[in-house]
Simulated scan of single mutants.
Amino acid sequence: MTSTAAHVARPALVLGPHTVDAARISADILARNPDHPQREAIRRALGNLPGTRRYLAPYEQIVGERSTVQRKDDTFDAVRRAARDAVTAALADTGLAPGDIDCVVVSSATADKVPGLAVHLLNDLGLRPDVRIRSMTQAACAGGALALVMAENHLARYPEHTVLVLVGEFLSAMYQDSARSLEDQIYKALWGDLVAATVVAARPLGSAPTLRIDHTWEYTLPHTVERYRKLTDERGDHFSSTRDSLRSVTDLAPALLDWLGRHADGPLDFGILHPGGPAILTRLAKVLGVDEEFVRHSRDVLAQEGNLGGATVLSVLHRTYRTPPRPGHQGLVLGLGPGVSTAALLVTWSG
């Protein structure tokens, strides 16, 4: 356990206001690709992604033609507006004011501009000019877990501080009709949008039980940079991956299990996991030796909201707060992203 405890408050979520049925997305993809050489494989893959997705913009705008500049401007502006709302709600939930925040940790791989999102939040919300800013634009799907790791690291040096964590992704804005590989089509049906904020401090914020961070871990698989990438062309940004990406959980397993074996206090009781997709989540559960209940919230987020990138773990944590574990139960927070890089936290539900 770390010498300074770090407690994570219940996250405040701003989900995309537009709920789109996955069946509509799948039908549209197939209609746009009538002669695709892998059309049957695409149909089968999309059939494994049921449920709904939450978008920050109407579906018609997501699939419509936009210039690279317009796409980036729309993405940044939408995430910035949602970030203001998420942070305002997180501060209200914890009884804090903007001036109480000493450090801001922000992760967004989609709303990347200069000056960045954190600087705009400082001005939009009236944060102190001396607030410490930690910004990440490359962690992507690992960003939520990594932001919590960075918050815990900051508190280890400054235990009297209060840290604001914001993770926001507008992943549906990565939709490109010209990206036509099997993996591209799966991403189009998988992505969702979320901006989420939470507060991390060396003390519980309020009298209710909280999530306490006990230990953190970071690990990067060497020579796997091709597995997950954000690419840019004349139409803007889009994500790409290779089939080797499905091996990432298996490849990480020895190091992950070694870390858990050295630091976990017995079996894990609950999971707050970034579910990249149904197959990856199933493989992770198998590696951890856990049952379906352990991954229930992660699977529900995937089915009802989509793959929300780094913000996923905060949506899963929000559901965990609604149906909390028993005090003293031990859990795992884990995010897997490009690199292939992983951030994980051993946590305890502290009553």
Rank of each mutant, 00 (worst) to 15 (best):
V105I: 15
A109N: 10
K72N: 14
Q176L: 15
D112F: 14
S108P: 04
Y187K: 03
T75L: 11
V87K: 07
G206M: 11
G206S: 10
A145M: 02
A201G: 00
T88D: 05
D130P: 06
D214C: 12
D214L: 13
K113R: 15
V195W: 07
Q176I: 06
T210I: 00
R203I: 05
H161F: 02
S135M: 07
V87I: 15
L205E: 08
C141A: 12
M136W: 07
Y175L: 00
D100E: 15
V131I: 12
K188D: 11
G168K: 09
R180C: 12
S135C: 06
I133M: 15
P98Y: 09
D193T: 04
P98M: 12
A147D: 03
D93S: 15
L211T: 05
D73P: 02
V200G: 05
E152G: 11
L148K: 07
A83P: 00
Y187P: 06
I213W: 05
R180S: 12
L182S: 03
P129I: 08
L148R: 01
G116A: 10
D177L: 12
P129M: 07
L166G: 06
V199W: 07
D93T: 11
L117G: 02
A201V: 03
R80Q: 14
L125R: 03
E160Q: 14
A145H: 04
D100K: 07
D102K: 04
V105W: 01
Y187C: 10
R132P: 02
K113I: 00
A179V: 10
R157W: 05
V199G: 08
D184W: 03
L164D: 05
L148A: 01
R180Y: 04
R203D: 09
L194M: 02
L166N: 08
H161Q: 10
I133A: 07
L127C: 02
R132K: 09
G95D: 14
A139L: 15
S207Y: 02
D85H: 11
N123G: 13
A147Q: 10
A118C: 10
V106L: 13
G126I: 13
K113A: 14
V195N: 00
L182R: 12
L205M: 14
S178C: 14
P98R: 06
L91H: 04
L205V: 09
M136N: 09
L155V: 01
M136T: 00
T110C: 10
L96K: 02
C103G: 02
R180A: 12
L166V: 15
V106H: 02
T110A: 11
V106W: 03
P115K: 11
A196Q: 00
V200F: 01
R84T: 13
G192P: 01
A142M: 13
S172W: 01
L205D: 04
A142T: 13
V195T: 14
S108L: 08
V200C: 03
A147M: 09
M150S: 12
A197L: 03
G144W: 04
Q176T: 08
V119S: 14
G192K: 10
V131L: 04
M150N: 03
V199C: 04
F170C: 01
D124G: 07
K113G: 01
V199Q: 05
R203S: 08
